[in-house]
């Protein structure tokens, strides 16, 4: 393997990993706060990208990319709150909330995905890149947008880390995830925290969509594959551990890039699943996971 190929694999792995990390951290946040998986997380990424496209593109409202992204991110706050209200909140006191919300969030995913298809049609779309042109990195050429993703993802994740670790609301989110009844007894409004966790998670999904929407083509199924990857990553990284999720995102990104090179794009995704199964046999709690509650 020449150094060219190696660096190409590493760079494309990091690009993949950055997108996965942004995507999976939102899924992980909702899991560790509410103990549910939001299967609509992928379609939120799609919706975020389409909203940004409509506001920014010349074929849409033509307000420019900055406005498009801002509107999209703001709208994701509302969408996140709406999802929580409509398909999660009615089941908080239910014993089988985990199973019920698998169904309700899957239902939300399908409804939103079909809605996107109705509104925007099946024709492929693409967002304009935030940064046009190409960049050379480690003897490999990537688009400037991909370079931006490499830089932006760690910054966003650091901000999320600081928010959860240092801010009053962030700490309250963690407290609710670890012990909701004790959190209630120190005056935390648990249902407000659930809403905030969903909103932050939806913003992360929308941001991922906006960033990847100029690297890939937009279809109503745009977020489906990233959702599956994000699920794998959250489990592989260890349920309830944000640092595990982020570590796993970059590992899976690099692994995928390597496998694409070795066995081609056709078999790479299946092989990742096979490897994951072996890892989970050896380490059922995932990379940095704790015992599942």
């Amino acid at each position: 393997m020449t150094s060219d190929i190696l660096s190409a694999i590493i760079v494309s792995g990091i690009v993949l990993g950055s997108g996965y990390a942004l995507m999976a951290s939102g899924l992980s946040l909702v899991w560790s706060t509410l103990g549910i998986f939001n299967f609509a997380h992928g379609v939120l990424m799609t919706l975020g990208a389409y909203l940004a496209w409509t506001v920014s593109d010349a074929a849409g409202l033509d307000f420019g990319l900055a406005t498009g992204i801002a509107v999209s991110i703001a709208a994701m706050v509302g969408v996140g709150i709406l999802i929580e209200r409509v398909v999660v909140r009615p089941f908080y006191d239910h014993r089988d909330i985990l199973l019920i919300t698998v169904m309700t969030t899957l239902a939300a995913m399908i409804v939103i995905q079909k809605g996107i298809q109705l509104i925007w049609g099946a024709r492929l779309k693409q967002l304009a890149p935030i940064m046009p042109g190409n960049v050379r990195l480690l003897q490999t050429t990537i688009s400037a947008q991909e370079a931006l993703i490499i830089v932006l993802a760690p910054l966003v994740l650091c901000a999320l880390w600081l928010f959860l670790g240092r801010s009053r609301i962030g700490r309250a989110i963690r407290a609710v995830g670890q012990n909701p009844s004790a959190a209630r007894l120190i005056g935390i409004d648990v249902s407000l925290i659930f809403i905030i966790a969903f909103a932050v998670s939806a913003v992360l999904a929308g941001l991922t969509g906006v960033l990847l929407g100029s690297v890939r083509l937009l279809t109503p199924e745009f977020g489906a594959e990233p959702l599956v990857k994000a699920l794998i990553i959250v489990i592989f990284g260890g349920l309830g551990s944000l640092s595990g999720t982020i570590l796993a995102a970059y590992i899976i990104g690099l692994l995928e890039a390597t496998l694409v090179f070795l066995v081609g794009i056709y078999w790479a995704p299946s092989l990742i699943f096979v490897l994951l199964i072996f890892v989970l046999i050896l380490r059922p709690q995932g990379l940095l996971g704790k015992v599942v509650r």
Binding site: R171, R174, A175, Q178, N179, A182, A183, L185
Partner: peptide, 10 residues
């Protein structure tokens, strides 16, 4: 509350 295990990871 009784036997409060508080926030294990904090």
């Amino acid at each position: 509350p009784q036997a409060n295990r508080l926030f294990p990871d904090m």
